[in-house]
């Protein structure tokens, strides 16, 4: 699954640690999700969407979907 997390984070001027603190997870988690190595659980995906004020579908994309 692809995602726009890195772009959205850059738009807000947040470091990985800043985003991790907002989500209540480790920086490693944010790094792994950004790099596509880990797909978050649904509750965490909702938390990410809430932090950015977007829907889950606006952040996470199916494989093959244009970013």
């Amino acid at each position: 699954m692809n995602n726009r997390l890195r772009v959205l984070r850059a738009e807000h001027g947040w470091s990985q640690q800043d985003l991790a603190d907002r989500l209540g997870v480790s920086r490693q988690s944010v790094n792994a999700i950004e790099k596509g190595r880990y797909d978050p659980s649904l509750p965490l995906a909702f938390s990410i969407a809430d932090v950015f004020g977007l829907t889950i579908e606006a952040i996470f994309l199916r494989d093959g979907d244009p970013e």
Binding site: Q28, S29, I33, Y38
Partner: peptide, 8 residues
């Protein structure tokens, strides 16, 4: 371990 990624 509350962090789901670290737990994994």
């Amino acid at each position: 371990l509350a962090d789901e990624y670290l737990q994994m």
